[in-house]
Design a protein around this nucleic acid. Structure first.
Lengths: 198, 198
DNA sequence: GAGCATGCTTGATAAATGTCAAGCTCATTA
DNA sequence: TAATGAGCTTGACATTTATCAAGCATGCTC
């Protein structure tokens, strides 16, 4: 059950975990199972735990005053889920996180994570690199959001995270791109027609 | 000249710098002066240095196929400037960075930064926290970009970084928000009129 | 198998935003 | 001082995207 996490840490840190380190990890993280549509975090709660997804698919989103959902982040196997802002600042979250498929994640509190980082160099290095990579990824999303048209953003997503398109329903993809489901439907129709033309 | 940087590191790390540490820092960072409109980085270059702004104002932006500029990030005193993606991955940058006012920054290479982080705990802690904060800030920007209207994004900027509105010309603010200068002008007119009405 | 919910598509129309062109103000410079 | 250019505003119009409403599959539940 913890194998994917060990591998992930070793990959991201370029270090090897010792047996005692693995045991410490397996005793610290707790397995959490979620049914499809079940909440992992609700708006207003504090994100005390952050989770490493070992199975399933999840999303983090806000709900605006009109009741529309806006997806900030998707997660599938080997991704971390949680509201970093709430988790790090100990503030109530503006977001909801729920399971899009039946999911399993390994959860750890902020306090426990600090301990693991202090005790296990590989975990420390992994988090450092993760923060860095995440920064880059989010910045690229900002770039896409402010400089590309809806159609270009869709193509960009196709190139960057093709797996999402298979995994999440179209209305969620639209929400992730910041457009309405109708517009996404029309964009797809349009781009299929231009492919045929070639 | 290095005082602001020492203070910044001490603040972000909650640690105090020793005299030898300060000397190491002052011998590692190099002062770089930029005239208004001068480039710090041009598209296609690799961002070898990252700079801590001690004076002035700068921006990082991309230019699209129509020649339009899209501002990804602003920087003023006590902000870091550089393309993190290019800096960390050693890849050519898609962005330009230039000075909006005459500016001075303290520059350091990625390699030198690794060394400082290894030798000075405060620098290590500072970078860790900076990466974390930056993640949160960029994620909030994604949230704004996909879920708010142009007018709401402007109000959000007013609340989050009011200093930017004083410091950067309106057409750059528009570019940062992902809207045309004309639209921003109309939004401002509109929100001034509703203020008067109150 | 009937009924029902969910997700996707399509059309008609409305609202938001972009584009183009012109004019105005202000600071800078020749 | 005149001239220039940069930045901001405004109007007319075009384009993009959202909204609302309807219909159609598909799969699930009783």
């Amino acid at each position: 059950m913890f194998e994917p996490l060990y591998l992930y840490i070793e990959n991201y840190s370029s270090l090897t975990l010792t047996q005692p380190e693995k045991e410490l990890i397996s005793h610290t993280f707790k397995l959490k199972r979620l049914r499809k549509k079940q909440y992992y975090l609700q708006e207003g709660d504090i994100s005390k735990y952050i989770g490493f997804l070992i199975k399933g698919a999840m999303r983090m989103y806000s709900v605006d005053h009109k009741g529309h959902e806006h997806i900030i982040r998707f997660g599938v196997e080997n991704w971390w889920m949680g509201d970093y802002e709430s988790y790090n600042m100990n503030t109530p979250s503006r977001y909801n996180i729920d399971a899009v498929e039946d999911s399993e994640l390994l959860a750890i509190s902020g306090h426990q994570m600090q301990e693991l980082m202090a005790k296990i160099p590989a975990v420390n290095a992994m988090i450092k690199l993760l923060d860095r990579r995440s920064n880059i990824a989010v910045q690229n999303r900002v770039h896409a959001a402010i400089s590309l048209t809806a159609e270009e953003r869709y193509q960009n997503l196709q190139e960057t995270y093709p797996a999402f398109l298979q995994r999440f329903p179209q209305n969620m993809i639209a929400s992730y791109l910041g457009i309405s489901p109708e517009t996404l439907s029309r964009i797809r129709k349009h781009s299929m027609m231009s492919k045929k033309a070639i």
